[in-house]
Design a protein around this nucleic acid. Structure first.
Length: 202
DNA sequence: AATTGTGTTGAG
DNA sequence: TCAACACAATTG
């Protein structure tokens, strides 16, 4: 596809945006648990406070949802929150409005995206950790279909930062080029960087 | 060997 | 429906 020069992340010491991808970012507005108690001998992993999230023996987190007496595995995740939101996504897709999400209800855009895919597809995305990108991709290509020609402008690049939003989108978004307005509409911080910067990131 | 995902059980 | 636990299947 676009094998040539994906996105050169210009370092850009701009203060408006936070750290570049690859760095662990702090999340805001999340629930912080206090895992204060631990038994002396038992190595039992602490149970998750989130629905649909189970701890794995390896100190990771698994997400699962039950559909018709059957367990549907949603994959394993490094972060408890991500696993919890994976459940939220699946929950919305499986049970529609009856879903009991761990976090805020999903945005209309995301729900529309969910409804445009089968359960298996959504589960597959979650398990392969590609849901976020698929969702972003879908939203970026949406619209009136008229502004798409302009989005391919080669003289600008977008640096996209992320943070946890109410709509439930998090993680880095890989967009070659897209309409900033579209991204902002989705609650993503977008910084347009002129190409001549060409800095490197540390 | 390490990790993921399933079998299974038991509680709500 | 839900998750804890045990362990088989899978992956590196």
């Amino acid at each position: 596809m676009d094998g040539s020069s994906i996105d050169q992340i210009t370092s850009s010491e701009s203060k408006s945006i936070t750290s570049p991808p690859g760095k662990k970012l702090r999340r805001a507005g999340s629930v912080i648990i206090d895992a204060g108690f631990e038994e002396a001998s038992s190595r039992k992993v602490p149970s998750s406070q989130f629905k649909g999230v189970v701890s794995q023996p390896n100190a990771q987190w698994g997400a699962q949802i039950y559909d018709k007496h059957k367990r549907v595995w949603l994959g394993t995740f490094k972060d408890e929150e991500v696993a919890a939101r994976a459940f939220d996504v699946a929950s919305h897709r499986f049970r529609g409005r009856d879903a009991a999400p761990n976090f805020n209800p999903l945005s209309d855009d995301e729900i529309a995206f969910l409804n445009s895919h089968s359960k298996d597809e959504i589960v597959d995305m979650l398990r392969k950790h590609t849901y976020r990108d698929e969702l972003a991709q879908s939203l970026l290509e949406r619209g009136d279909g008229r502004g798409s020609s302009r989005s391919t402008g080669p003289d600008r690049q977008l640096y996209i930062d992320w943070h946890v939003t109410d709509s439930g989108l998090n993680g880095p978004i890989d967009t070659g080029r897209a309409e900033p307005a579209m991204l902002r509409l989705f609650g993503v911080n977008v910084l347009e960087v002129p190409r001549n910067s060409g800095g490197d990131e540390s």
